[in-house]
């Protein structure tokens, strides 16, 4: 045991307090949303700031869960998130790995990938492609157009490049072909980065909003964010100017308690994913894979 000086302890204490404060500012909005969603509208109107319900009321949740729209679109989003993330990982990882091998045209393809980071096609051309491929009004329209994020692809390729080539050689000597090497050696070694990318992709899918409106004409296929926005923001035009004011007036917002309950229900599932992926971020996976 190394003895710590008083100043070191003091610094630790200050750090702890500061970090706790920062954590509290992050948690505070969630606590507020949580408390309001379980309060009665009367309480919310009466009190300035609510951090804990005075009396517990579940009316807001009852209203939301009774609405088929909400639960159905929660299901749609869960489906798109799970299937979408799997598709993302499969395509991103395979293409990234292929681009680490010295094959003909590898550099050209890499340049084209980078090109799409710099220049994107825009809304209408992309819509035309989705329409041309017959994906309109299909949930695949939310998954396939963004199956590979160029940025993630390049970062993952960089990660694959950092894996010592001796491992590939060793696998080759043991008789593994490229496919076997990829699935049995490379992928298991890449778990931490795959976990990180699956989180990026999953959160992206969970927040799908505009693509849902653009590509899906059947409202029963809308993802949760569209429904959430309709509940929470429909009445909140940031530019509440001109004739919009009149439109806004004619469509009053649902009570704040329902809005908050909707936010909580729509955010909770993706929040729960985080702790489960946490363990994969543990360092030292590569430690000791190559000796000497």
């Amino acid at each position: 045991m190394i003895k710590r000086t008083i100043s070191e302890r003091l610094a630790d204490a200050v750090n702890a307090v500061l970090l706790l404060l920062i954590a509290a500012t992050m948690l505070f909005p969630f606590l507020h949303i949580f408390a309001v969603s379980f309060s009665s509208l009367k309480d919310v109107l009466e009190r300035d700031l609510i951090l804990w319900p005075r009396e517990w009321v579940t009316d807001a949740y009852y209203t939301i869960l009774a609405s088929k729209n909400f639960t159905r679109s929660l299901g749609v989003t869960a489906y798109v998130t799970i299937v979408g993330t799997l598709v993302n990982l499969l395509f991103t990882a395979t293409m990234a790995y292929a681009l680490t091998r010295n094959a003909l045209g590898q550099r050209v393809i890499l340049m084209m990938v980078i090109f799409t980071i710099l220049f994107s096609a825009g809304m209408i051309p992309t819509y035309l492609i989705v329409k041309g491929t017959g994906l309109i009004n299909s949930l695949w329209a939310l998954i396939l157009p963004g199956a590979i994020s160029s940025f993630n692809l390049i970062v993952l390729r960089q990660f694959f490049l950092s894996i010592p080539s001796e491992l590939n050689e060793a696998a080759l000597i043991d008789g593994a072909n490229e496919l076997r090497t990829f699935f049995s050696i490379i992928l298991p070694l890449s778990k931490p980065s795959l976990a990180a990318f699956s989180l990026f992709y999953a959160v992206g899918h969970w927040n799908t909003y505009f693509a849902g409106i653009l590509y899906l004409s059947d409202s029963s296929k809308w993802p949760i964010q569209v429904i959430l926005r309709q509940i929470v923001i429909v009445n909140e035009p940031t530019a509440a100017l001109g004739q919009e004011v009149m439109l806004m007036m004619e469509n009053p917002p649902p009570p704040i308690t329902i809005q908050m309950a909707a936010i909580l229900l729509a955010t909770l599932p993706i929040l729960i994913v985080y702790p489960f992926l946490q363990k994969h971020f543990a360092k030292g996976v590569m430690l000791g894979s190559v000796k000497g």
Binding site: I124, Y127, F210, I213, R229, Q230
Partner: peptide, 11 residues
């Protein structure tokens, strides 16, 4: 939804 109506319509 009204806030994205024009984008969808033009598409």
């Amino acid at each position: 939804p009204q806030e994205n109506f024009v984008e969808k319509l033009t598409a």
